[in-house]
Design a protein around this nucleic acid. Structure first.
Lengths: 214, 214, 214, 214
DNA sequence: AATGAATGAGAGTTCATTCAT
DNA sequence: AATGAATGAACTCTCATTCAT
């Protein structure tokens, strides 16, 4: 049993993904939810606050997943986590990245939070990559190479859907193709130890077959 | 001395990059240009036609550059072309990719043309990559790997600005960083022959120093 | 104390009669009423919905009057009802018929409702005429003659104002002349019994003198 | 080989019938004709002048037909002329009557000419009817009855299409039905001599079968 | 918490008309 | 005669937001 505020968020996410945040009016949201516009504005000061609330929810989930990684236990699975765990979240909040630039232009507060958040993400990805290097799963690299591996990862992870969405309207299929974008992007950086690991082959097979739920 | 139609296109591009196509009204365009809205609509049936005209201009330039590549002369420079020649064009028309997903949702005709165009681009990039493999500059790869190299290239090329724009407002700097994204993305696929080639080092140095005009 | 929605309808009717529905903008309506355009569109999805609401109001009144006819009591007065009762309604909603053809072309939903409504009206007029025939007030006629009596009645009733409006701007006078159009149109179909009836003479005198309120 | 001015008139008539005069822009007309708007305005001061020119053409044809009636030769055929000769003209210029009231409201000059013209028409119809009475084809009637017979004729002739257009989109069929409206309207006023005349039966049969070209 | 009426700016677009060429 | 670029007012309609209840 969710509160009205939560319902507004969920409905907004659905509509933003469907038609885009900029194409979705507050009236659309309240109509779809079956509440009054006034009530929506009782819970949120304005549209940007809805967007920011959504983004904060997104951040929380992403960080919860990232922080739940057990760095000690089983190092190769870090890759699997990196690849699979976030897929569902990224689908649910896909408009955030698909529409990112207009959101940054249109909503200044959102831009500030996004910037701050990206910096944190960069640190975490770096930590992850360094950990993988330490355990011999990832080839060593210079600081500079590392920086561009990080940014490229982010770009590929956040924007692969842009590519597939042009070619097809099948969201699930596109997301599964996108997971292979990430996999094949990271592959050249893996060590022979990684490539020989049975678990990596399992991941590759899983992704290639697309035999998993989203 | 450019025609009104051309001026509308140029002004639209400027405003679309600045505020986003969806945030720019036809009245903004005509006001900035100092003409009446009526005159704008005399030259273009509607806003989508302006967008499409811009996109067609973009395509023409991209294809002109691509078709001017001399495949015989000097194979390594294909990479340089791939990296540098399009940068200016991509800056000028950056809103096309930064705002892509909302444009696809909002303008159905544009989507059709974009889809068609992307399919052509894919073929051309494949041809380029195969040519590089043939001459020993790129490592051989499977059909599948090739497909994801192509899609990842496209994603990195078109969306690297998304990343840097969050962190800084300096467009030129961001574009130059983005060029390194492309370079470092492609590097793991290069053969030793490429890596040993002096011209590649020159490219890398050029990009790292950012000592080139845009 | 009427609601805003009702006021919009009343103001629209006034303006539509005055300047024509097609010559009346939604801003005219809201300006005359002293509300914002936004408010008008809060109450009505679009202009066609205003038109349809007006038409439905019109239908309701027409049918209420028609259904209030007591077929048992006094048959000759059916004619009087047919002639007089609807006059006020037809004045109030006169643009509906004066402007009919453009409304049908311009508003497809309106056309559908109008078609449906006309078919109902035809049935009711037929019933009325048959009742008059049964009681010997109207000459018997073939099915075919009946059909064209019905259509001609409708045409005369709905369009007589078209004629008089060309010749004079005095609406009330024109409407009263129009009532005689209906009367003289129907007269040749009346039986001797009708013509001998004092009440018919009364009606004729009333209409000729125009000594009644509208 | 018609002049540009004539072509503008013909094209305007087509478009006015199709979409309504008020829904047809000068741009529509010049586009359909393949000339420039400027050229259209070279030939006509404004839209109203086009309308008036059309109306004058219409008047000329109507009067030419009316004046060609040979009152001596064969009196019963006056009815046929009244019924059939004008049908083609009325189809061609149907928007003039279908859209009449808005035209009167929107174009003051047109209204003046229309008023003047209607008065002339009334005189001519009266003359025709009196001639028919004189020869025993039409029942004698009072001045008053005559006036309303005239106005009702005009209403039925000009507005019967309004009725049928609601029920069907088949123009030719509707016009043919409309001809029966006129016929059945006039029938009660005919003398036994008319009704016994074989030529009248021929007309009725012709109209009922609809076996004639338009 | 919630309603829903109201605002007013601004969106995309069309229009009759003008005018230099 | 004819072109077609240009105007600017007006059109229908949508938007984020406010506020009395």
């Amino acid at each position: 049993m969710s509160t009205t505020k939560e319902k507004i968020i969920e409905t907004s996410i659905e509509l933003f993904n469907e038609k885009g945040c900029l194409n979705t009016s507050t009236r659309h949201i309240s109509d779809k939810l079956g509440i009054s516009v006034g009530n929506l504005y009782y819970h949120f000061k304005n549209k940007e606050e809805i967007l920011i609330e959504i983004f904060i929810n997104y951040i929380k989930i992403v960080f919860r997943e990232i922080n739940s990684i057990n760095y000690e236990e089983d190092e190769i699975f870090l890759l699997k986590d990196f690849l699979l765990n976030n897929l569902k979240t990224d689908i649910k909040y896909r408009f955030l990245h698909l529409e990112l630039n207009l959101l940054l232009i249109s909503f200044p507060k959102f831009k500030d939070i996004m910037e701050e958040q990206l910096k944190k993400e960069i640190q975490i990805i770096k930590k992850l990559l360094n950990h993988q290097i330490l355990h011999g799963y990832l080839k060593p690299m210079s600081e500079n190479e590392m920086n561009f591996l990080v940014s490229n990862s982010w770009i590929i992870v956040r924007h692969n859907l842009s590519y597939w969405n042009i070619l097809s309207n099948d969201l699930i299929l596109n997301v599964k193709k996108g997971s292979l974008n990430i996999y094949y992007f990271i592959k050249p950086y893996l060590t022979q130890k990684s490539l020989d690991d049975k678990r990596l082959k399992d991941i590759e097979n899983l992704l290639l077959k697309g035999d998993y739920d989203l």
